[in-house]
Computed example of a mutant assay.
Amino acid sequence: MHARAVAASASALLGLVALLLPTSGARADHEAVRPAVIAHRGASALAPENTLAAVDRAHRLGFTWVENDVQRTRDGVLVVLHDAGLARTTDVERVFPGRSPWRVRDFTAAEIARLDAGGWFGRRFAGARVPTLRQYLARVERNRQSLLLEIKNPRLYPGIGGQVLDELDRAGWLDRRHRSRLVIQSFDAPTIRTVHRLRPAVRTAVLGAPTVAELREYARFADQINPRYTKLTVGYVAAAQRLRGPHGRPVEVCAWTVDRPVDALIAAGHGVDCLITNRPDVVRRALSVFWTSLP
C-alpha cells in the first residue's frame, strides 16, 4: 500500500478509535502508552517467517525487536521454525515424499538444511533455509537487534528450556550486556518457571491470559504476560502492571498478533507495553499518525 493511502486510512480511523479508546483506567500520558512494536517471526508479512531474510527485513525497516520460535531436530539441534511440522513453510513433501507427517523432530538438522523455506512465500526468496538457533542468534547480533524467543511445544522436546539457555550462553547472550535485549517466552508456564529457576537474571514471559487471580503467582517468575489482543481489557492490563515481576519492575503486557491499524490503536489505548505484529511497518505508521494527532 502506498504511503499516501496508508496515511489516509489511518486518518480515517482516528475518529472511530477515539470513541473506542477507554476514558479512564489507561495511562494518561500519551508517551507512556505508546507501545513498542515487535516484528513477529521477523517482518513476516514481507519475507518468509522465521528466516534470516525476515530478520534482515525488520532491521532494514528500523525495528529493534524481533520474535522467533524454536523447535528441536531428531539429532538434538535447535532450529527456528514455528510449526511442529515442516510442510507449511518448506518443500519437505517434495524432497522427502515418503516421510509423512513431516514433523521437525523426525528429521536431522542436515536433512532440514536441504529444504527450501522461502519459495512458498515468493520466487525471490526461493532457496532460503531454516536457520539453526545458532545462525539466527548470530544474525540478530550482527543487526544489533533484540530478541523475544519463544520455546515451542516443550512437551515434545523434554529439556528444551535448559538446552535453549545453553545455546544462548554459548552465543554470549546471557551476559549482562544482553539482558535488556532478550526475553524468553512460552505458552507453557512450567517451562518458563524452569527457565527462571535455571537463569534468574533472564527476563521471561508467559503467553496467554491467566486469570486476574492467577497473575500474582505468575509474577513470581514472569516479567511479561503476553495475551492475544482479543483478550485485552483496560482492567486486565492495569492488574498485571500493578504487580512487580521477578526483577522488581512492573509486569509488562505484550499483545499478539496485532496486524490491523484499528486493533493496534485500541490495544495501545488499553496501555499495553508492546505489540507483536506480522506487519510492523503498518502498525508503527498507524501509531505514529494517531499519537501525533493528539493535542
Score class of each variant (00 low, 15 high):
211 T>C: 03
217 E>R: 14
123 R>V: 13
62 G>T: 06
195 V>I: 14
238 A>D: 14
215 L>C: 06
37 V>Q: 05
67 E>Q: 06
213 A>E: 15
147 L>S: 13
141 E>I: 05
18 A>V: 01
113 A>N: 08
211 T>I: 02
187 F>T: 07
282 V>M: 10
92 V>P: 08
167 E>S: 05
255 A>M: 06
73 T>R: 01
270 H>G: 07
159 G>R: 08
48 P>C: 11
216 R>G: 10
88 R>C: 04
17 V>S: 07
23 T>Y: 04
199 R>C: 12
201 A>M: 13
82 H>L: 10
16 L>Q: 09
44 S>G: 09
131 P>W: 00
217 E>W: 04
98 G>V: 01
158 P>R: 13
112 I>P: 09
188 D>M: 00
202 V>L: 07
78 L>C: 12
16 L>A: 13
291 W>M: 00
52 L>M: 12
281 D>N: 10
140 V>E: 03
44 S>F: 11
180 S>M: 07
213 A>S: 14
14 L>F: 02
106 D>K: 03
150 E>A: 06
212 V>Y: 01
73 T>E: 02
163 Q>K: 14
210 P>I: 02
54 A>L: 08
113 A>P: 08
236 Y>I: 03
96 F>C: 02
272 V>E: 03
103 R>F: 11
193 R>L: 12
176 R>W: 12
196 H>M: 02
177 R>G: 13
251 V>Y: 01
19 L>I: 04
80 V>G: 12
146 S>V: 05
236 Y>L: 06
53 A>D: 04
263 D>E: 11
24 S>K: 10
174 L>E: 12
286 A>H: 00
